[in-house]
Design a protein around this nucleic acid. Structure first.
Lengths: 179, 179
DNA sequence: GTCTATAGCGGGATAGAC
DNA sequence: GTCTATCCCGCTATAGAC
């Protein structure tokens, strides 16, 4: 039942957004009443928190060892993250900024991502290199999401390679990026 | 005063998100009371609508003539759009999905953007070409935003070129994109 | 043109029956 | 474990004084 609630939340938070989804919506989607939800979760926010916990842990992992990996490996890891937790990511992306802020602070999403971006940009990056790294990161996210939609939830190896190629091209566009 | 309200709304909607920003927040930021706002605007949503109107018109313009322009020109136009209306764009991006849906339907943001993406992808695009176009579009958006932050609101010609270069690289990464 | 006061409503959360 | 009923708060919007 906990799992059912999380499934429904994944879907609703991902499509409508967290704030706009009411506990009543959730209950209705499950065919139960609001009260029933509160037996399994302490609050509405606890549901979101549970949803976000796993991907958050993986991002922390990735950020911790970001320095040891190549930009390409990092971009690939981001693709895989997105592929494994598409809905949770959707929820984070389409959720309001306020939710992003709360959970970014709790799980330090922004900080982790920044570390990864820095690692992708390379040592002592110029402003343009940093920006290119940011562009590459959002590009893989967007690309992975689009590819998942396209492939009905599946991401082929070929597609993964193509995404990687496209995003990596951003990094050393116009020549000298000292990666 | 209308302008002051829009300024405050630009800032608050852009940072906190539309739904989460209350009319009380808005009034407090302006040093007036909620009631005062309703003299100038019919509703909270009317404020957002006014904010979004200009960029929406420009996007419609761009989408209407998308076929006549090269991918590079389109990406450049998107950069300029973002540079001219950074806050409105922020509001749209960080706003909840529900707001995006409502105003996307009203101004057909999604549809316009899709047209532009199609034009960037070129005629009869493969799935990967389409995805690359999507990646390039989010990349210029992210890049333009980052560059604006970096430059304190100013976007130099050099920076604009760099962004364009980086995003364009995504399009024909790994060789054959028939643009 | 800006204020106070308040109506009206939706949503999160709790209590207690079953 | 799920239900009904209810409390309470915050928010949008309105009415009317100044």
């Amino acid at each position: 039942m906990r799992a059912d609630i999380l499934d429904a939340a994944r879907k609703l938070f991902g499509t409508k957004g967290y704030t706009v989804t009411s506990t009543a919506d959730l209950a209705e989607a499950l065919g139960v009443t609001k009260g029933a939800l509160y037996y399994h979760f302490k609050s509405k926010e606890a549901i979101l928190s549970a949803l976000v916990a796993e991907p958050a842990a993986e991002i922390a992992e990735l950020a911790a060892h970001a320095g040891e990996r190549t930009p390409r490996e990092l971009l690939g890891a981001l693709i895989d993250l997105q592929a494994h937790h598409p809905a949770a990511y959707m929820a984070l992306q389409s959720g309001d900024a306020s939710v992003l802020q709360e959970h970014s602070q709790r799980h330090d999403f922004a900080g982790r991502t920044e570390l990864i971006i820095l690692a992708i940009a390379g040592p002592d990056p110029s402003p343009i290199q940093l920006i290119r790294a940011r562009m590459a990161v959002v590009a893989v996210k967007e690309g992975a999401m689009a590819a998942l939609v396209e492939g009905g939830g599946k991401l082929t190896d070929q597609m993964r390679l193509d995404l990687l190629q496209a995003a990596a091209a951003t990094l050393d566009a116009g020549g000298r990026a000292s990666d």
